[in-house]
Amino acid sequence: MSLLKLKDLVKSYGSVQALKGLTLNVPEGCLYGLLGPNGAGKSTTLRIISTLLAPDSGQVMVSGTDALLDPLSVRRQLGYVAQEVAIDKILTGKELLQLQGDLYHLNRKQRDLRIAELTTRLDMKNWIDRRCGSYSGGMRRRLDLASGLLHQPKLLVLDEPTVGLDIESRSVIWSLLRELQEKGTTILLSSHYLEEVEALSDQIAIIDGGKVIAEGTPNQLKKRLGGDRVTLRVREFSDEDESLAVRELLQSIDGVSEVVINRSQGFSLNLLIDDVSILPQLRNHLEKAEFEIFALSQSRPSLDDVYLQATGKTLMDAELEIAGKRDVKLESKKAMR
């Protein structure tokens, strides 16, 4: 059963269309990863789920409640940890959690018990009584996560929870998320860290250009690619004409199902092969056509391969491409209430 259902979400900021009919179903008790480059529409999706933003059209259902018609009920069931940690630097961590508890209408006993529990669990005892202004990024993120969990939400929404964090904080957060997942909390997590999404998520949706372009478990997505990946470079720095010629040659070989040119990696070629046994044959073909082999590596498919296969570019390329087009100032202005 799906705890969260998003249907045909559309959202524009001026002339920029952030979501173009995004549809997603998050099963109850699942740790669901949203993978995509910055600017793909992940944060906009999460802000809509958390009722901070209204979509131009579409539907958001949380545990059977329409978030657009009854946002208050949805807010009660939801914990939201935003990408930008918004804390009051003057308050101590404990005071911030007390404020949060009061805003969620916990009685004092419940509130203080939860604060004590989360302080211990997130290893915040040594600094929870210090003012937030003195916290490092990792401390802030842990505090933010504690405030999202204070009222024991059914659905925890995390926007890039470990971006820029130290290893210790990342490890604490990963461990807590796994524990929450085991105990049945539904978690929706956005990230552009492949290893994070792969390590934590039961299911993944890859978002590109405001739409879900692939969905499933990490293994399903990788299996859909159908075989092993081979990365081939005929020269250290090839060019487009040469890579196109090599691609044409490779596509004619039986057992090679997909060939994608990776422009950002010196026009290397990423190909999908049915079996490693065709590698000698592949070498022969290249030699006959008088192409040298500068490098050839074979690997099991990764999520980056899934992304590359689905979009024709690596996640890093997509990040760079979008980074050049984004107007962060405009976006933050539009996000301001």
């Binding site: 009722t51 807010r75 009660r76 935003a82 918004a86 804390i87 405030s147 209430r337």
Partner: peptide
Amino acid sequence: FGFLNRLLVAP
């Protein structure tokens, strides 16, 4: 600073 969003996400 986005603190208002924290308040607005609360029920």
